[in-house]
Simulated assay, not measured.
Amino acid sequence: MAYRFKKSSINKSGLPPGTLVYRGKERQEEVKITVFNYSNDDYLEEQDISLEESLTYKEKAGIKWINIDGLHNIEVVKSLGEAFNIHSLVLEDILDTDHRPKVDCYDEFVYFIIKLFSYDATEEEIDIEQLSIILGDDFVLTFQEKEGDVFDNIRERIRNQSSRLRSSGSDYLAYVLLDVIVDNYFVVLDEIGEGLFLMEEDLLLEPSQDILPDIQQVKRKMIFLEKSVWPLKGILNNLLKGDNKLFKESTTLYLKDVNDHIEKAIDTIQTFRDIINGMMDTYLSNINNKMNEIMKVLTIISTIFIPLTFIAGIYGMNFRYMPELESKLGYPITLIVMSAIVIGMLVYFKKKKWL
């Protein structure tokens, strides 16, 4: 089971606040912009449109959801920020893909940073992507590092005129995005849990040294996952405690439910960390037990040969007048005595359950 997390780092020291510098994996593909413009009666969906076309939706009626796949084109992020009056510090955080999850409340919008997990079953890899969500009065902007997400169900709900999304405001869309992201945490955690179960079985059946690096690797990644989710704990509660005009009272109840799911995800991650620590203890115990068994066998062998060595040492001395040296039965009697000692000691060890 292998988990790989790749991030690149660019030194921003010395730059003034609000300087737009992309920090993330280098990408060559074009930035993709998708727009949903909907109301209770109608909706419009446009895929892979230009920056200029997406900016025209600012003045249109209805709820606008503009999704950007790709942050490596700084000009796209900058232009959207200027069009929707987004503070430069927020744009700076959007481009910093190593940022910790948080919620910032401004007069005209609310800014969320949250981590999006995805699991590749073929490669057995977990990918962590930063997702930025900006909630305005009649719009939601989402910024993703790359194409591909877990929002297909939300798009289908927007296309369905009878869905609650079509008759709700932008705050409800922001809630649904957060809810789907958090629910997807459990999908990834279930995959991790299954992998831990298999590792635990292998550890109990055959505690080889090859499994130790896997345990250490999973332990490091669980720490990383916890760091990606833990900051979310209480963030929504703190948001709801404030007087935020962008969230209707009917939506706040759902946000509390999302916060409960976040706490459950954190509890699951901590449980997995405890399991991993237990696996490490089990591995060390198995190694110690195996070492003890080896030492036990060596000790028993040494104990058996101590009296035999004593007898052989006596009759190996070069004294001329030793009584048994001239006896024809001396050699077989000595072997019989030595064999009896060995058998007697083995019977005694068996009786004591040392064998």
Rank of each mutant, 00 (worst) to 15 (best):
G148S: 01
E147D: 08
G234R: 02
F224I: 14
R166E: 00
F224D: 11
M199A: 04
V188W: 01
E194V: 09
E200A: 01
P231F: 02
I181C: 01
L196C: 03
P207M: 02
V229T: 05
L165E: 02
F197Q: 15
K146V: 12
G169V: 11
K221W: 10
D214K: 15
S170Y: 02
V180H: 13
L232H: 02
I154T: 04
N160Q: 12
E194C: 11
L196E: 01
E201R: 13
D179N: 10
R159Q: 08
Y172A: 00
V229N: 05
Q216T: 13
D190K: 11
E145P: 03
F186E: 02
Y172M: 08
I215Y: 09
R164L: 12
S168M: 07
D179Q: 04
G169I: 13
K146W: 13
L212K: 05
R159K: 11
S167H: 14
G148E: 01
A174L: 01
D210Y: 09
E200R: 04
L203W: 02
K146R: 14
F224G: 14
I215V: 09
R155L: 01
G234V: 05
L165A: 04
I211H: 00
D149K: 08
S167I: 15
R220H: 12
V180I: 11
E200M: 03
D210C: 11
I192H: 03
I223P: 10
N160L: 07
Q209A: 15
L177G: 00
F151H: 00
G193H: 06
E147I: 12
G169A: 14
E156R: 12
R164A: 05
L225A: 07
D179S: 03
L225W: 01
V187P: 10
S167C: 06
R155N: 00
G169H: 10
I158G: 02
E156I: 09
R220W: 09
W230R: 11
I158L: 08
A174I: 04
D183I: 04
F197C: 15
F186G: 08
V180S: 13
Q216C: 11
Q217S: 14
Q209D: 15
E194D: 15
A174V: 08
K227M: 05
Y175W: 07
D152R: 11
